[in-house]
Nucleic acid binder design. Structure first.
Lengths: 172, 172
DNA sequence: TTGTTTCCCATGATGACCCATGATATCCCA
DNA sequence: TGGGATATCATGGGTCATCATGGGAAACAA
């Protein structure tokens, strides 16, 4: 049980599965380039990033070459012979785009991906553990507000279970 | 060094990850030529591409000289002594067409292949891992929409593994 | 020959790559 | 604890390779 409390630690456990954490701001410059947050870039290998448009949200899921496997493993809950599963598998293996990151930490997205997330102006990066997501700052803020509201609603449950430190914290 | 980290046997799915990934737009020019996306062409050898019409979709399956093997191995589900299997094997080995790619990256399809996929105007290329498919942009878009609908349909099942946080914002 | 297909060249456009510079954060040492 | 040195980062821009595209010439078939 002691090892399970690694949520509060200021330093991440490198061997832990949670590789991408935190929120970072970003933007698109005049040439359409996007700076990948250094904290995330350091976790990517070979200066390459894999991107997949989220199925039902205006977000781009990003990660390393494990992204495909992560996405596919999410289908584990579906019946192996379900036709939907086959379609989703195709969509994942075919939809993941491999992009390069230059030495200044920037990448440029294909237009189709940018459109999926309606990227424009202020952007946001948000860690999701095995991968991270990219979207407009506005959308991510909205998501965070919803999450906070949900957390508040279930505060008692959460506190009892795993987040004693949340007790005195309230969003302003 | 990375090889030591594969503790989870369940993730072992694809040792050599997809060679053909991502989605690219294309078209047919006035002389009937099609530009093979550079990302795919780089993975083909000897400036040649192998093409085979998909069995039940208006798509052309494309790849390198491994395509025949891939297609044949897809028959693995059929009984080894099934008569249909023998027919299909003949169909595949005899039906795969080998086409050349010129140094500007273009190829021109035999009329029969173009008709199978109803190629006209805007086209789309979609990675499928070991190979990729070619079809009209309209058809591939339709497939993507179907996949997204399926993802929404199974959202609750997928969310447990793929989408932490916020539940569907069924709005007021 | 005449129409059709393949091959190759030319050109403009796009994007990848690299450099420079100023700003910011971090570290070290007095 | 303050200040300087150092490393990292953000940002803009220039250059060059690659690519997209149209079209001509050559090879081929009828």
């Amino acid at each position: 049980m002691n090892a399970a409390t690694d949520n509060q630690a200021s330093q991440e456990v490198q061997a832990s599965p949670a590789r991408f954490t935190g929120r970072y701001a970003g933007k698109i410059d005049a040439k359409g380039r996007i700076v990948v947050p250094p904290e995330f870039r350091q976790r990517l290998q070979n200066n390459e990033i894999f991107v997949f448009p989220h199925f039902d949200e205006p977000l781009l899921q990003c990660g390393d070459d494990q992204l495909v496997n992560d996405l596919l493993s999410a289908l584990g809950g579906l019946d192996e012979f379900d036709e939907d599963r086959a379609i989703l598998e195709e969509e994942i293996t075919g939809g993941v785009m491999r992009l390069g990151i230059d030495d200044t930490g920037r990448t440029s997205l294909p237009k189709s991906l940018g459109e999926h997330a309606a990227l424009e102006g202020a952007l946001g990066f948000a860690g999701r553990g095995q991968h991270f997501v990219l979207g407009t700052a506005a959308y991510l803020d909205q998501r965070r507000d919803i999450a906070r509201a949900a957390a508040t609603k279930h505060r008692e449950t959460l506190r009892a279970r795993m987040l004693p430190s949340v007790r005195s914290r309230r969003s302003s």
